[in-house]
Design a protein around this nucleic acid. Structure first.
Lengths: 347, 347
DNA sequence: GTGACAAGCTGTAACGTTTCAGTATATTGG
DNA sequence: CCAATATACTGAAACGTTACAGCTTGTCAC
C-alpha cells in the first residue's frame, strides 16, 4: 500500500541491506528476507525477482545481524595447542578445513591454548560466549573432558582421534594400530627382530592404538620389544636424540625403530649416528610423515604417509554435518595407512 | 524454534546481558554500559559496584551486539595462500599472532585463497563484508595491489615483508639483504668463490632484497655468481633437486649455495648428492631456516635462523596499534639475521 | 528565592536480521 | 451472496549493544 516512505530513504553508499533490497523491489523487508531463503509462501516470480536484484547489487547478509537475531555465528573454531601441535599438522589441517568451508558462509577461527592452561579453558570460553557453531579439537584422549563437556552442552564438534568413553561423536582418525603393526611386519620382513617404538604422547588415545598395534604385531611375527618409553614424540629433539644414542650404545640395542612422527625420526637418526651406527645397516627405521621430506633426509628411511589435509577436510565435513542435523554416529571416519614405502632413486 | 520457558523476564538462565546487570544493580542499561567502560559521568562508587557484579557473574559483552551497533568486529584476519605458504610459517605466525591477541577481545580468523584466485579476492571479500578490523597479509610485492586497496579504503593492515610504492603502512620484515650478504661473506671466508642463489619467489619484495644482498656481497668479496634463476623456493622439491643436480654436473659448477628456505635446501642437498658430490667438501650451503632441523639433516649445513613466531607477534602488534590510532609509520619493524651458525657436536 | 550549572542517571532509537501475528485480495464451496 | 480458505504479502518486535538527548537532583552565586 503505502510503500512511499518517500525521499527520506538514505541514499546509503554503504553496504546494501534487506532494507535496500526492499526499497529497490518495492517489497517489505520481511518478504525480501523470505524470498532470499526460498520460503514457499512467496510467489515464484517475486522470489526470482528479489534474488536477481540481490545478486546484481551484491547483497551479503550482515553476519552480526544474523548472529544477534538467530544466535548462529557461522563460525567453526579450530582449537590448537600452541606448543605441542605438530607443525605440518597446523598448516595442513587449516587448509583442509578451509577447502571444505570455502563455499559455505562459515569462517574459521583459530583458538589457541598454551601448555600451562587447562585444555578445557578454550572450550569453555567458546561455549560460554557462544563464539562458534562448531568446534574441532585435536590431541584427543580416551576419556576426554572436552568432548564430554561439549556433548553435555549439545554443541557440535569433531575430534581428531577417537575417544573411548562409550559416547558417540564425530571424529576422524588415522589407523595408528594398523600403521604400527604394518611397520613391525615390514621390519620383521627385513630380518629385524629387536624393535623400539617412539610413541605418541602418553595419555592421548592414539598412544594406546599405536602401542597395541606394535605389540600385537611383535608377537605375531615373533620379534621382541626394546623398551623406549621414557620419551615420546612430544619430547624435544635433544631429549629423543640423547635417549636414542643411549639405547643404541647398549649391546642389546634395537635393530629397528617405529616412529610416530617425522621430527622425532630426525632425532632418532641423529641419535643412531651419534652412537656410531649406520641407518640401513645396523638398524632400520619406519616413520610416519605428513610431508614428503624424510626420504630426502636419509634415503634409507622407510615411511608411511599420513594426510593431515584430508583430516582437516573430514573434520570440517563432520562438524558441518552435525550442525546440519546429521547423526553424530554417521560422521566418523578412519583413514587407513598406505604401504610402507622405501626410497626409489629417480633416474 | 521452540519457545523457551514462559517466565523468562529477568530470571534468564542464559548468558548475562547488560539487562541482567541493570536488573541486579537496580540501574539502567545505559548506566551499566557506561560504567563498564569507565565513562567519567558515572559515579565512582556506582562504577565499582557495576564492575564488581559484572565480574562476579562473569558478564561478557555479546560480540554480535557490539558488532551490529558499532561495526567493530574484534576480528583480525590472517590471509594465507593455501598452496605456497611455507609450512612452518603458517604454524608459527598463527601462534605469534595468538600470543599478542590473547588478552584482547580479538579473535583470529584465517582467510585462505588458492593458487587460481586473484590474491585481491580475499581482501575484497573482507573489506566489502566488513569481516575484520584488521588484516595481515604475506607474500608482499613491491607494488602490492592488496596494500594499495586497503590503504584506499582505510582499513588497518600489516604486511609480512615490505612494499615499495612510496606509501607508508605497517610491516614486519626479515632483513633478507643482510642475510644473503652475510651468507656470501661467510662462504667467501671459507674459500668458496662460485656461488649460486636459491631465490625467493620472483615478484615478491624480498626476492629483490635477497638478490641485491647476494650480488652486492659477491662483488664486495670478489666472488662470482653461478646463475640459478630458473627455480625459486616456490618450485617443487623435485624441480629444485633436478636443477641442482644438473648444475652440479657441469664443470663450472658452484662451490657454494645460499638458500632462502629450509625445504629448498633439502632439495639442493639431494641434488648435490645426486651429482655424486659431497656437502662440506665439494660445496657448502648456507640456508635460512625457521625451525632447528637442518643441522639434523646434514651437520655440514650452515644456517641462519628466521623467527616466524616473532614475525606473527610483531604483525599483530602493528595491526592492533593501527586500529588503536597509532601512526602507521611508527609500526614498522625489521628483524636482523643472527650469525651464520655451523654445527657444534654436543658432547 | 531564583537561575545557572554540574553530576549522575535514564529512556529511546538504531544497527540488520528473523519471527510472529497479522492484513488484503482472490478463490472456492454452498 | 456469504463464509471459509488459501495466497502473497506486511509491520512490529526482538536479539544486545551504544549514542543521543533528556531528566532529576543538589549546589552555588547573587
Amino acid at each position: 500500500m503505502d510503500r512511499d516512505q518517500g525521499e527520506r530513504d538514505d541514499e546509503a553508499p554503504g553496504r546494501p541491506t534487506l532494507k535496500t533490497l526492499a526499497f529497490m523491489t518495492g517489497l517489505g523487508v520481511t518478504t525480501v528476507s523470505r524470498a532470499l531463503k526460498d520460503a514457499p509462501e512467496i510467489g515464484a516470480e517475486t522470489r526470482r525477482r528479489v534474488q536477481l536484484v540481490a545478486k546484481q547489487i551484491g547483497y551479503r547478509p550482515n553476519r552480526a545481524g544474523v548472529r544477534l537475531r538467530t544466535g548462529k555465528t557461522n563460525v567453526i573454531s579450530l582449537v590448537l595447542n600452541t606448543e605441542r601441535e605438530i607443525m605440518s599438522f597446523v598448516s595442513d589441517i587449516i587448509y583442509g578445513v578451509s577447502e571444505v568451508i570455502a563455499d559455505t558462509p562459515y569462517h574459521l577461527i583459530v583458538t589457541p591454548y598454551s601448555r600451562s592452561q587447562d585444555p578445557l579453558d578454550p572450550i569453555r570460553y567458546l561455549v560460554e560466549t557462544g563464539s562458534a557453531d562448531g568446534v574441532i579439537i585435536s590431541r584427543t584422549q580416551p576419556n576426554d573432558p572436552r568432548a564430554r563437556y561439549m556433548l553435555e552442552r549439545g554443541i557440535p564438534f569433531a575430534t581428531h582421534g577417537r575417544t573411548d568413553m562409550g559416547l558417540v561423536h564425530p571424529y576422524h582418525d588415522f589407523d595408528n594400530y594398523a600403521f604400527a603393526a604394518e611397520a613391525v611386519r615390514h621390519l620383521a620382513g627385513m630380518g629385524r627382530r629387536r624393535l623400539a617404538l617412539v610413541t605418541p604422547p602418553v595419555g592421548l588415545t592414539y598412544h594406546g592404538h599405536t602401542v597395541n598395534g606394535f605389540t600385537d604385531a611383535l608377537s605375531e611375527v615373533g620379534a621382541s620389544e626394546v623398551p623406549f618409553n621414557t620419551v615420546s614424540i612430544d619430547h624435544s629433539i635433544e631429549q629423543i636424540r640423547m635417549r636414542t644414542a643411549q639405547v643404541m650404545r647398549r649391546q642389546d640395542r634395537p635393530d629397528g625403530f617405529v616412529s610416530s612422527a617425522a621430527a622425532a625420526t630426525l632425532a632418532v637418526v641423529a641419535g643412531i649416528e651419534d652412537a656410531g651406527l649406520k641407518l640401513g645397516r645396523d638398524v632400520d627405521v619406519v616413520s610416519k610423515q605428513s610431508s614428503e621430506l624424510l626420504h630426502l633426509f636419509r634415503r634409507e628411511l622407510l615411511v608411511v604417509n599420513e594426510n593431515f589435509r584430508l583430516a582437516g577436510s573430514e573434520l570440517a565435513r563432520s562438524v558441518l554435518g552435525w550442525i546440519g542435523g546429521a547423526e553424530p554416529g554417521s560422521l566418523q571416519s578412519l583413514s587407513l595407512p598406505g604401504e610402507v614405502v622405501a626410497y626409489h632413486r629417480p633416474d
